[in-house]
Amino acid sequence: MPTPHPFDQAISLTRGEDDLFYGHTSEHYWNAISPFGGTTVATLLQAILTHPQRLGDPLALTVNFAGPIKKGPFTARVHPVRTSRSTQHWQMEIHQGEDSEPVITGTAVFAVRRETWSDTESKLPDVAGPEGLVSYVPPHAVPFLQRYDLRYVDCDPLAGGESSVTQCWIGDVPRRMLDFPSIAAYCDVFVPRVFVRKGAPRPIATVTLSINFHVDEAVLAQHEGMEAFGKAKANAFNGGFYDQEAQLWSRDGTLLATTHQLVWFRD
């Protein structure tokens, strides 16, 4: 039996009673002082995807990072609060130890999509494919960054300057087929915008992250892709917080997801 991909190991859960799932932080996807936020988001999404009451595919989710996750076991609770014929609303939490307060809170919406008039205004930029680009080597050996192949098409993301825009191809290491959890993780893999503007790392922490998915499971299965193209930017830095918005496309130009987050930073 083949060894599971490190990402699948990182988001693996054991089903408990009622709406509870049990997991463990992953050394492979550790950030500086806590787990990579993308795997936290993907883990909560995975809990809903495997929940017996799940309806349809993910439409939107928001995850709030209320406190630090420590190394070790954790308990996730995902609860469907209301279900209609085509949409389903969920509440999500992660707890650790005996602490009654959650370290993560969030909401998600799943839906059954239907055939309607469709159009996509956000187009894949006219850029070279990943094959001719060099893989980004981060200045510090952060564990989770070793699990992603990032290939920037426009600039050194830590060059500094007046623009926070970066564009890059994103893939898993080792390579892995795209699915909803990996897309969710990709939404948080971009170099933080304040690093891009200032040209160097500094203390940051994501406060809240939202994702809108623009494909369903059937469309995603047709692509069988192993990488996505991402474009990210900030709109404002003030009062110790900044935002980051981004889009993700498949290689054929299908818009996979759009995402927005607010991040705390320190000068």
Rank of each mutant, 00 (worst) to 15 (best):
V194D: 02
V194W: 01
V194F: 02
R197N: 00
R197Q: 07
R197V: 13
G199V: 05
G199K: 03
G199H: 02
A200V: 02
P201S: 03
P201N: 07
P201I: 01
P201H: 02
P201R: 03
R202F: 00
P203V: 04
P203T: 01
P203Q: 00
I204W: 08
V207P: 07
V207A: 13
T208L: 06
T208C: 03
L209A: 08
S210F: 01
S210M: 02
S210E: 03
I211P: 03
N212V: 05
F213T: 01
H214I: 00
V215Y: 02
V215C: 08
D216G: 05
E217C: 05
A218V: 11
V219L: 04
V219K: 12
V219A: 10
L220R: 10
L220S: 05
L220G: 12
L220F: 02
A221I: 03
A221S: 15
A221G: 13
Q222Y: 10
Q222M: 13
Q222H: 09
Q222V: 08
E224C: 13
E224Q: 15
E224D: 14
E224G: 12
M226K: 11
M226C: 07
E227M: 12
E227I: 05
E227C: 15
A228V: 10
A228Y: 08
A228F: 14
F229K: 12
F229S: 07
F229Y: 13
G230D: 05
G230T: 07
A232C: 10
A232W: 08
A234E: 08
N235Q: 10
N235T: 14
A236K: 12
F237V: 01
N238A: 15
N238T: 14
N238S: 15
N238L: 09
G239Q: 15
G240N: 11
Y242I: 06
Y242W: 11
D243H: 12
D243R: 13
